[in-house]
Design a protein around this nucleic acid. Sequence first.
RNA 1: GGCGCGUUCGUCUAUCGGUUAGGACACGGCCCUCUCAAGGCUGAAAGACGGGUUCGAUUCCCGUACGCGCUACCA
Length: 481
Amino acid sequence: MTASASPSAPSAPSKTTSSASNPLILMSSTPARVRFAPSPTGYLHIGGARTALFNWLYARHIGAIFVLRIEDTDAARNTQEATDVILRGLRWLGLDWDEGPVTGDPTGPSRGDRGPYFQSQRGTIYKRRIQELKDRGLAYDDAGAVRFRMRRDPVVIHDQIIGDISRALTDREQEDPDFVIVRSDGLPVFHFVNVVDDIEMGITHVVRGEDHVSNTAKHIALFEAFGVQPPAYAHIPLILNPDGSKMSKRDQGASIQTYIDDGYLPDAVTNYLSLLGWTPKEGGELFTKEEAAQRFELGDVHRSNARFDMKKLEHFHFEHVRRIAPARFVELGVDTLRRLGVNVDAFPPAYTAAALTSVQEKGKLFRELPTWVDFFFLPDDALNFDPEAKAKALVPTARPLLEKLRERYASLADFTATALEAALKQLATDLAVKAGPLVQPCRVACTGRTVGPSLYHLLEILGRERVLARLDHAIAAIPAT
RNA sequence: GGCGCGUUCGUCUAUCGGUUAGGACACGGCCCUCUCAAGGCUGAAAGACGGGUUCGAUUCCCGUACGCGCUACCA
């Protein structure tokens, strides 16, 4: 069987509307409901973000309601701040939810009528459901805990991605098949609350990490115990470290915050993430999440884990950043520069915009922006010459060249990129030298570095006054012979 | 140990039994060039292993190896 082949039963549609194989959905006029149910651990894991993304893509593709539920049963560890981190991460990625919390406050406002959307607020619901199982003889007290009467025969999971899986009891489970659903301290466990919430919230599709496949047998048994048809399941492959090991909290790039801090474009992150474990049938690699949502099919999701490749993510950032509207780039750039302490507000907005736009095509991470444009915002006599650049370009032989260049630029009629280029090349011809010996010292004189935006454009943006001042300053800084 | 899932270039992947096994990132070379890039051209690079089935297997089946997940009164 190929990776893209349909794992479904012969009679079931191979793709598109996996919900069509679910009578519950077919017969109902209520829309499908999809959910992302993170536990607030203090950070949003890249794998969790991708799970959220796939849920979002699928929900948007089929027009389902996307529900966000916070699984904060561990009161000690789950703080409001920890939940805020998740919400912030999802919002940054642009993954909006139709129902769920508005803030990280469990008792705060929420959207939707199936709440509360924090498990910490759903205690009475769980108690009622426990009693229901007990009344039916499907759960019983055991040493202070409550156990569920698990079925002993293999459970078949109809997974939309993996296909049919028959999950038999393990050796340990054979000895003790009835698993705990309420701990002796009174707290219901994950398997139980997860299923109860999915029932109460009317979840029709569960899209989650492959690490839950084995658990799904328990969940299905629980659904059956409640007399409810289980949702359609889709288990997506995991994201691994570059070396193939499991990506954990400490690993580089594990937290979404990394990408926020480094200044990646959210669309680049979602684009890259969507391609880790999914390929659109129609082909193509570069797209927005909205475009991805149009094409997203669970049947096209892969079955094997993928390793994370930061270089490729950077490439997607490069491609996306060059495509966004200049105004948007400027907006993001100004935010970043302010945050990193560059004094942009002392300059006219048009100047700042021009300065930033000159490097948009470089496609750099926003965090790297100061390296490329900080010279625009420094006093003319306070440029920090990169030592290597200075040693290489601001040498005695460059002095007469710079002096001549200053002369020409001082008397230039139009201080525009084309005129600046023409004047420099004319001077090179007149002096019988190549352009390089003029270009490099001029660049270092005006920017302090050997790399940067296009020289003539940068000069035009700086303007005659600054350029002449910088040339003077550089000429004075050239060591005597 | 048990129960599951997986295995195509370094990485992400295409391939619905017959292909010179294609693309992207990364890497090398050439061209272009005001720096760095970008762009164009180009190079190297893959079917884990062993059995079947078949006229023919990367593709279907079995086994082995390896990887991953689960195996909690964690989620």
